[in-house]
C-alpha cells in the first residue's frame, strides 16, 4: 500500500523526496528499539540507574540517614588503605579457585567419564550432583557450619578413623577457615558445571572421536584433544556463572564465619553489608561495590575474549 502511494514520488528525485526517505529509514531503524524498549526500561530502572546512583553515593561521606558530605575519591583511597577491605577483595579472587577452577576440572572429568560409560543410574547421579545448586545458600551455610564445628560430624569422623589429632574448630583456624569455606563453593558449583559440560559433550560431533581413534588416541588424549577444546563455549559459560558467584558471594561467608577469624574469610559482600549497617559508612560501601563491579566486568571481558570460538 505504502509502496504504491509513494511510487510516483520516487520517480521524481527531489530534495524533499530524499529527506522523506531518510526520515522513513530512520523510523524503520527505530522499530527494533521499540521491541527492546520494555526490557531495556526495566534494565535501566532496576540495574543501570541504581548502579549509577551507587557510584554517585560513593563520592560522599554519608551514614544513610544524616547529612552527606562531599569527599570526592577519598572513599576509594580508603578501600586500598584498610586491611579488612583489601583482604576482602583478595579473598574474593582467591575463592575463584574453589568456585570455578575446582568445579570445572571436576565437572569435566565427571562428564567425560559419565558420557563414555552410560549408566542406568544416570538420572539419580545427575540429581544428587545438582542438588546443592537448588538449596538456599543460607541453609547450606548453616549445615556446613555444623559439620565443621568442634564437635561436629567431620571431627567425629576424623576421631573414628584414628585421626583425632587433626580435629579442630575448622572455621576458627586461620589456616583452615578459608579452604573450609571455599570447598563449600566447590560443592555447590560442581553439579552445575557437570551438567553444563555433559550437555556440551552430547553436542560434539562423534566423527571427531572416530577420527581421533583412527589416529591412535587413547581415552586420555581424546579427552585433551577433542573433548576439552570442543567444550570451550560451555566452559566459558560455567566460568562466567561461577566467577560471578565467587566475587559476589555473601550468604555462605556471612552465615558461617562472618568474615573471621580475623579477616581470613571476609569477602566484599560481607564488608559492604557491615559498612552500611554497622559502620554507617554508606559512601565507602558504595565505593567498594563499585570497585567490585568494575573488577567483575573486567574479568568477564577477559573470559569472553578467551573462550570465544576461533
Amino acid at each position: 500500500m505504502a509502496e504504491t502511494a509513494y511510487a510516483p514520488r520516487r520517480m521524481a528525485v527531489s530534495r524533499a523526496g530524499t529527506a522523506t526517505r531518510r526520515r522513513r529509514r530512520q523510523a524503520h531503524r527505530l522499530v527494533p528499539l521499540l521491541y527492546v524498549a520494555p526490557g531495556f526500561l526495566f534494565y535501566l530502572t532496576f540495574v543501570i540507574a541504581p548502579w549509577l546512583q551507587s557510584v554517585w553515593i560513593s563520592l560522599w561521606e554519608w551514614n544513610g540517614v544524616g547529612v552527606a558530605t562531599w569527599v570526592g575519591l577519598d572513599n576509594y583511597a580508603e578501600i586500598l588503605a584498610e586491611p579488612a577491605l583489601r583482604a576482602a577483595l583478595l579473598n574474593a579472587f582467591g575463592f575463584i579457585v574453589f568456585y570455578t577452577v575446582i568445579p570445572i576440572v571436576l565437572g569435566l572429568v565427571l562428564a567425560a567419564v559419565v558420557a563414555a560409560t552410560p549408566w542406568r543410574a544416570m538420572p539419580v547421579i545427575r540429581t544428587v550432583l545438582f542438588l546443592p545448586q537448588i538449596l538456599p545458600l543460607v541453609a547450606v551455610g548453616v549445615v556446613w557450619k555444623w559439620i565443621y564445628s568442634e564437635d561436629g560430624p567431620l571431627n567425629q569422623l576424623l576421631g573414628a578413623v584414628g585421626l583425632g589429632d587433626f580435629a579442630r574448630a575448622w572455621l576458627g583456624d586461620f589456616t583452615w577457615a578459608f579452604p573450609a569455606v571455599g570447598l563449600i563453593g566447590s560443592w555447590v558449583s560442581t553439579g552445575l558445571c557437570f551438567l553444563l559440560l555433559l550437555s556440551g559433550i552430547g553436542r560434539i560431533d562423534q566423527s571427531l572421536y572416530e577420527a581421533a581413534k583412527m589416529d591412535g588416541c587413547g581415552p586420555v588424549r581424546e579427552f585433551w584433544h577433542v573433548t576439552v577444546p570442543s567444550l570451550r563455549r560451555e566452559i566459558g559459560v560455567a566460568a562466567t556463572v561461577t566467577i560471578i558467584a565467587a566475587l559476589a558471594g555473601f550468604d555462605i561467608v556471612y552465615v558461617m564465619t562472618g568474615g573471621g577469624p580475623g579477616h581470613a574469610t571476609t569477602v566484599p559482600g560481607v564488608q559492604v553489608y557491615e559498612l552500611v549497617f554497622t559502620a554507617g559508612r554508606v559512601g565507602t560501601a558504595c565505593a567498594l561495590a563499585t570497585v567490585l563491579s568494575v573488577l567483575t566486568c573486567a574479568v568477564m571481558y577477559g573470559i569472553n575474549r578467551l573462550t570465544k570460538e576461533r
Binding site: L30, L33, A49, L52, W56, W60, W62, G66, V67, A68
Partner: peptide, 27 residues
C-alpha cells in the same frame, strides 16, 4: 548518530536525577 543521541539523553536524565547529595532531604 542515533545511538549517541539516545545514550546521551538517557545519561543526562540519570545525572539530573542523581545530582543531589544523598539523603539531604531527610535531615
Amino acid at each position: 548518530k542515533l545511538k549517541v543521541t539516545i545514550a546521551t539523553g538517557i545519561g543526562a536524565c540519570l545525572l539530573v536525577a542523581a545530582c543531589a547529595p544523598p539523603g539531604a532531604s531527610n535531615a
